[in-house]
Design a protein around this nucleic acid. Structure first.
Lengths: 333, 333
DNA sequence: TTGTACGCGTTATCAC
DNA sequence: GTGATAACGCGTACAA
């Protein structure tokens, strides 16, 4: 492995000159520049990024902190981040936290000690600990899938969860559903989850439909809770003709519950999902769902982040487009 | 951020002494050790890993190179690697390659320049370029899901794909199926894929059943190819009573094809999957499949790797257990 | 425009 | 046992 010194020697110049052509940090005579370039090429020289990091106090690493890589929603986000980062010469340090605050902080410390250039952060709720870390360490960060007002002043990329849920509900109402249930995410801390219930409720109100709390089930985004919620809601004397789930995984669980209760979907029950992850397509009936451009959220998160890292671009809040994709799980009554 | 010098000053010792208590590299008097420890605590000092890496030429980074993080099979593996690595103080550099050799090599170069301690590698086929990289750079590596004889002498963690496919086929045969189709992975380069077809064929032979090439479809592990393969096989004049798919995703695609052709599963057609990823459970009917302990493969890969990194443990080939998990997609005839 | 020399935070080799 | 000091590979004032 050749170093900058080898290049300097071969080109007959000093290391500083080599450094200058490497970084375009100062003007260099074109003939010497050529000599250096040739030497670099000849030696197959590549600057040592560790040494660089040590002096610059900034690496080419981007931390991606998420609750669970083994969840299609998060892995799609990571893929988006990775693609964009790779394009710009950054690598991904994967921080899998299980949604645990302690682990999040632990990883944040690791990122700091490795001089990570920035981090894309997806958490159920932005906590004071997070905010103060980013403030103190001055590490650029963008929060993914987080409502603008909860990011502590940092950048974010998301969709408008309130409006998306509002429109999803409207979609159901337009199809003559007046009895609509809702399986939500955790309402205590999942901020975008709260937005979705609120969008749902608002749509009900605006259409003169009463909200029925017995048809609201607070799940946790997992298959199991969709199943349980479905059982809870559908076994009541009076049951809704449609249920809106705050994500696809729960919707799929709900499908199982409906099947178990012999309620055919969509004939007897319409089911509307959220996210449009891979499972929406493979389940039977295929899920009508609100598509959230997860991979794009990852891409734009990375893009925004790198903008802040390199260009000193201003903090910003991006809202991406969602859309209702109609498949087989909803029908008019 | 305090450095080793600050600690040395505060403790009234030299930096070398601090370094020694940090690394237990040489004996230190217990009273001075205590002073150092106190100083460390007082300053909240944490050794700078970048500087460490620069002098040791070895970081605490483990590269995980896979084709696609947004695929439940690979993401499960990554989760396993991450868990084990985190436990041992290593972090994960995620290398998403799209299965492209050029990108694999590109990432390998990045890993080298970052002084990665080792890499967990999952690729369709181990190529000469891979092997020579690991030989020359002396970077420890373990290949995941790769047949022992194709790892170029490096460690590996996998299951016995041949036997697993053999047993899967036997499972079908025991249930009186004599006409069995097979949807395979790519046969040109996916080595474990080849093993699975061979296990399938061998089971046929050992049971006196003819192999019918028209019932073999070469897919690519994706949903779409399972669907297409299903159509191809099931629209023939004579069709099998059971089809074995080399992974779950294709099995799910096959399910769609069967539904489209009005062949109810498992009544008219038994379908056997492979892997037991999340989708096996959410599809209807639920998939009977051969469970491969993907997450554990990740864990053991990391464990083996770290053993080689730290202990100079010998190269080894681990074969983990698989099992047939019976759900609703297969029946006796 | 170019070169010298020092610093980034550690570890390791040497003397003491 | 302990303490200087030279690496590790690079960027950058500063001097020329």
């Amino acid at each position: 492995m050749s170093t900058i010194k080898d290049v300097a020697r071969l080109a007959g110049v000093s290391v500083s000159t080599v450094s200058r052509v490497l970084n375009n940090s100062k003007p260099v005579n074109s003939d010497v520049r050529d000599r250096v370039l040739i030497a670099i090429d000849e030696l197959g020289y590549r600057p040592n990024s560790v040494a660089r990091t040590l002096v610059n106090k900034k690496s080419q690493l981007i931390g991606v902190v998420i609750p669970d890589i083994d969840n299609p929603f998060f892995s799609a986000l990571v893929r988006g981040v990775e693609e964009e980062a790779k394009k710009k010469g950054y690598s991904i340090l994967l921080c899998n936290t299980g949604g645990d605050l302690e682990q999040e902080i632990q990883y944040l410390d690791i990122l700091k000690e490795k001089y990570a250039a920035g981090v894309v952060f997806l958490t159920a709720r932005v906590q004071d600990e997070h905010v103060s870390f980013f403030r103190e360490s001055k590490t650029p960060v963008v929060f993914a899938c987080q409502p603008e007002n909860l990011t502590g002043g940092f950048s974010s990329v998301a969709i408008d969860d309130f409006r998306a849920a509002y429109e999803g509900t409207s979609y159901l109402i337009k199809r003559e559903h007046k009895n609509i249930g809702f399986v939500s995410g955790p309402l205590s801390d999942s901020s975008s989850g709260v937005l979705r219930v609120e969008g749902f409720k608002q749509a009900l109100i605006d259409n003169g439909i009463d909200f029925r709390s017995e048809w609201l089930y607070e799940g946790n985004y997992r298959y199991r809770s969709g199943y349980t919620g479905g059982l809870k809601i559908l076994q009541q004397l009076e049951r809704p003709t449609a249920i809106f789930c705050a994500n696809d995984e729960m919707a799929v669980g709900l499908l199982s519950a409906a099947r178990e209760l012999d309620l055919s979907v969509p004939e007897k029950l319409s089911v509307l999902g959220f996210d449009d992850t891979v499972m929406a397509e493979i389940v039977n009936p295929k899920l009508t769902t609100i598509r959230q451009p997860i991979c794009a959220i990852g891409k734009y998160s990375a893009h925004t982040l790198i903008g802040e890292i390199e260009g000193g671009v201003e903090k910003q809040h991006l809202l991406l487009e969602y859309e209702i994709v109609e498949r087989g799980s909803c029908k008019s009554i």
